[in-house]
Amino acid sequence: MPLVSLRDVRKTFPSATRGAPPVTAVDGVDLDIEAGEVFGIVGYSGAGKSTLMRLVNGLEPVTSGSITVGGTELNGLPERELRRLRIGIGMIFQQFNLFTSKTVRGNVSYPLRVAGTPRTEIDRRVDELLGFVGLADKAGSHPEQLSGGQKQRVGIARALATSPRLLLADEATSALDPETTHEVLGLLKRVNEELGVTMIVITHEMDVVQTLADKVAVMDGGRVVEQGDVFDVFSAPQQPSSRRFVSTVVRGVPSADEQAVLRARHPGRLVTLSFHDAGSTQAEVFSALSRAGLGFELVFGGVNDIRGRVFGHLTLALTGPDAVVEQALGTLPDGVTVTRLPNGDVRG
């Protein structure tokens, strides 16, 4: 049975302006999140990602539909029971949301106090947690004395204090620089792998999905438009709106504007070769083009590694007689998809 299960979940907010129709933030979402996995949620701003996450720990009640966490139905659960459920669900935030009036120790011990853990046990547990996140020497510091990365590590320690089975992370690295992001992602990976904590991770950063997530859902306008294995969704998105989103984080087939720039700079036929999960084909493609006597130049694209599986989209400018180009493209190995970019002056 999945740890978290959503069925036809809807959430509407009354509109801010009187008389206007209510805002539908989540619009009929079905999701299953298995214990132990890291589930990514991506999508444009306003897609309803944060709202969806806040439904999972009952910070907002659903308007309709069913959410179960560990077999407990949240819809209609009284506040008391919801609070008890939340003790078993950690949450971390983009802006860290540490209590500025408390020390690091005070922050990390807070959930334990709420849970009614005995005092001596609290001290032991806080030391253990601070050791885990590498801040053993910062117990007495106040949040404003810490760097962004350290703050988020305190946030993670606080979220893990009660040993939750599920951790919710809403843009947890979006306020951090790339190096610190890397550090925090490494920590979150340990949380999943060493502690076995299931995670739901909202992000707009490819890095996060790439290093952490097993599965991913793309949200648009309150709906999940596509979900599946991270590799499948990012290497070959099926829906137009997920394709559009993926193209913002993965360099795929160049857009019309990008094509215009490329054409102005490079003579020859522009083709995009899409590679899918096959290490050797790139070398085969390049030797095939060489054998045909074509000139080629790599002008756009990139290669992505998602947990050891590789995909990429490389746009080449090929120079040589048209017939030879066509013939060479026809003999490319399987596993390479060819997209011929329009040659004409589409945009004048």
């Binding site: 720990n57 910070l59 609070r83 008890r84 459920l85 939340r86 003790i87 669900i89 950690g90 949450m91 935030f93 802006q95 949301n97 540490l98 209590f99 500025t100 009036s101 408390k102 807070y110 959930p111 106090r113 709420v114 849970a115 606080r158 979220a159 204090a161 009660t162 919710l168």
Partner: peptide, 23 residues
């Protein structure tokens, strides 16, 4: 955000007033 953080760990509203909002 800090009130949300306190709610997310299961603190009651009265507790949040005393241990988060006022401090």
């Amino acid at each position: 955000g800090v009130i949300e953080a306190a709610r997310s760990v299961g603190a009651s509203r009265l507790r949040i007033i005393g241990t988060v909002v006022l401090p």
